[in-house]
Design a protein around this nucleic acid. Structure first.
Lengths: 236, 236
DNA sequence: CGTATCATTGAGCTTAGTCAAAAAGTGTGG
DNA sequence: CCACACTTTTTGACTAAGCTCAATGATACG
């Protein structure tokens, strides 16, 4: 598990393909309220402890939602891709921090108070908000299932498959890893070295192929799906 | 990690204190729609794959929300205590199963379609639904932070402290564990043996005291909070 | 009062964390 | 354009936390 301080993590160069906004489901009927801003790498969108005054949506690029533990360890609780909403809390303050990962990440922000008032008179909007909150629930549950897995091979395999699904580019089996090994490690709650070792392991088995460090190709999807469930007895 | 089949888990006898419904925040302005039913131990409230036709609230007792993996392993993704809502999905079907843990667990169920229509004309209700969804998000994030911890001692310590907070009976430092060791194991994503060992460890250190298997007393809260963050270097 | 399940304890083994260092990229400035 | 500095990624060796298998105690229920 990574003990690096947050400021030490900054391998977030522009991505090969600039992450098309293919999922562009912004809240309908809201052009006026949404303020879209471009963020630089590592820019804090909202931070743990400060008043939860806005909801947000990723328009383009990548974000990471995380919590820093007392001992300095960082747990990424959500990887945010285009179309993903965040900023929801049950309390008055955010209980997490969100940063832009890629250069030029586009964020739409919605003033919470105003939006809630608007939802009071626009039932369709209210439904939409609930719906995106449910999607956030779904993402979180998926991640819990990944982190709850046993072996690192299972976690990394799941991660690859999840990414392949969530950022389905033209080609189904070409995945451009949106984040660094450090981020993957903090997302899966394993050490960076273990992430690296798992990837080379999958490579040696001929399950995946790496072109550089970020471009990944799923060579044998079936095998990868086996690893996801049964990373244990995959020792042949 | 537990490989027991779900039906094999049934240590869910009536609890010493019948879990007062001290948190009784049911959806206001809804007496008519809420059908409250009593459930027996292990009774399935809603199951993975079937149409998500209702939302629910625990009125009394305890519930477990879980997912069974292909290999038979079970991951509990939410422990449900009185006042907790569940049943939210982004899709048409539930992607989890919920069972009553304690005998006589009371469940309020709300037909989803009807409730959504009602929310269309009652903005306050719409807000409430969003709010309870946000609470579900909060619980899930908390659990992710627990499962993402490194050592078993940290996980178990966190679990105890979380339970102490969530079911704050009269006395702050007396915790009645709402579930079996098996359930704790599947909630924390560790093996039953490890849960047991961690508890006896904490007992030997004088941090907690156990009266029977379910009644727990926090003797040294400060030490427990230390374990929660720093279970590693607690080897004195 | 017996039986099934839950809980605890022990021994051995495997996975992954830690520390350390080399290799591979990336970016900058001369 | 190349060289240097920096970061990220990979690999290695060692250690230990926790899983597995196995057996014994404890507890509830019929």
């Amino acid at each position: 598990m990574t003990i690096q301080t947050v400021s030490a993590l900054r391998n977030d160069r522009p991505l090969p393909h600039p992450f098309a906004s293919h999922q562009h489901r912004q809240l309908k009927s809201l052009g006026s309220l949404a303020a879209v801003t471009k963020c630089y790498r590592g820019q804090v969108i909202c931070s743990q402890g400060s008043p939860a005054s806005s909801w947000y949506c990723i328009v383009s690029g990548v974000g990471r939602r995380y919590v820093v533990r007392p001992d300095g360890r960082r747990q990424i609780v959500d990887l945010l891709l285009p179309g993903d909403y965040f900023g929801f809390t049950a309390h008055d303050d955010y209980d997490f921090t969100v940063e832009a990962v890629a250069e030029g990440t586009g964020i739409a922000s919605y003033p919470r108070r105003r939006l809630e008032m608007l939802a009071d008179s626009d039932a369709a909007l209210g439904r939409e908000i609930r719906q995106v909150a449910f999607q956030a629930l779904s993402r979180l549950q998926s991640q819990l299932l990944i982190v709850g897995r046993i072996t690192a091979l299972e976690k990394v395999s799941s991660f690859i498959l999840e990414m392949a699904t969530r950022l389905s580019d033209s080609e189904q089996d070409r995945v451009i890893l949106p984040v660094s090994r450090y981020d993957i490690a903090d997302y899966l709650a394993v050490s960076v070295e273990t992430v690296s070792r798992s990837l080379t392991d999958l490579k040696h088995r001929g399950v995946i192929k790496l072109s550089g460090t970020r471009v990944l190709r799923i060579v044998n999807r079936e095998a990868l799906e086996d690893m996801e469930h049964d990373g244990q007895r995959m020792h042949s």
